[in-house]
Design a protein around this nucleic acid. Structure first.
Length: 261
DNA sequence: TCCCAGGCATCTG
DNA sequence: CAGATGCATGGG
């Protein structure tokens, strides 16, 4: 590893917990825990090492990538300030306390799109395993162009029936029928995403939230349905329509899943 | 053996 | 329009 040319930076924050972020379910590729502590992180072809500090993280990366990683960790958003706007809801409050330090990362759009197509009707350990197999020996996750050339090998990675969605996606990108450039307007972007073969409402909302940082998008999956059943009488609570619903979704998802293990 | 996993496309009424 | 069903794969 060319860690030698990396420089050390500190990112100060009272709301940045690497382990919780790693376990929160938003990341399906790119993070690997180091035996020495900390994480090796890859996104959009860039690499970094992050180590937890009591008041933030230490980040090792190329000097020119520092701004990229600050954006990746969503340092533009003031999570402390968000606390004053948290809805008054008992279960949500408990989840927010439990999940303090979780942030909504700015993942690469292509990587978020790809991984959340793989995620449908699947479980997280198998999703990450499958994505690692697809990445293979490469140091970073392949671009759509690289993967298109290598598409014959996709089916051997344990994708199940989802391989046809991804092959169609790669073909459409290669032919120029589809571009990874969605409207800034959330509703328009959601329609564009849902017109892609294999993407429905849930995956579209994941891409909007994790790949385009639309914080009001609230993906509803089997765990969210369990939350509605277990804590809200089977109905979606009001906070699912809040402007920060995506953050609340992620935190309650993490809380519910942690409690059930 | 059945059930489930960060669902979706497709068919049926 | 809502509701039912099949789908690949692996772990519990």
């Amino acid at each position: 590893m060319e860690v030698n040319e990396f420089k050390k930076f500190e990112i100060k924050s009272t709301h940045l917990d690497l382990k919780k972020i790693n376990d929160s379910g938003q990341i399906l590729m790119g993070w690997s825990e180091l035996t020495t502590g900390g994480y090796h992180i890859v996104s959009a072809g860039k690499k970094a090492v992050a180590v937890q500090l009591s008041d933030g993280i230490e980040l090792k990366c190329k000097e020119e990538d520092k701004d990229f990683w600050c954006h990746y960790f969503d340092m533009e958003t003031d999570y402390a300030a968000m606390e004053s706007k948290f809805p008054e809801d008992e279960f949500l409050q408990k989840a927010l306390e439990f999940g303090k330090g979780i942030r909504i990362l700015n993942q690469n759009l292509w990587e978020a799109l790809f991984s959340f197509i793989v995620s449908q009707n699947n479980n997280i350990p198998r999703i990450t395993k499958t994505i690692k197999l697809i990445q293979g020996d490469r140091k970073t996750f392949p671009t759509a162009q690289e993967l298109y050339k290598d598409r014959a090998n996709l089916s051997a990675c344990g994708l199940g029936y989802r391989d046809k969605y991804l092959i169609r996606l790669l073909e459409d990108l290669n032919d120029g029928r589809l571009k990874l450039d969605f409207d800034e307007d959330t509703d328009k972007a959601r329609k564009q995403l849902m017109s892609i073969y294999g993407i429905g409402l849930k995956v579209a909302n994941c891409v909007l939230l994790f790949g385009m940082h639309k914080m009001d998008c609230c993906p509803v999956d089997t765990w969210m349905k369990k939350i509605f059943e277990n804590h809200y009488g089977g109905k979606a609570p009001d906070w699912t329509k809040d402007i920060n619903a995506g953050y609340y979704q992620q935190v309650t998802f993490f809380y519910e899943r942690s409690g059930n293990r």
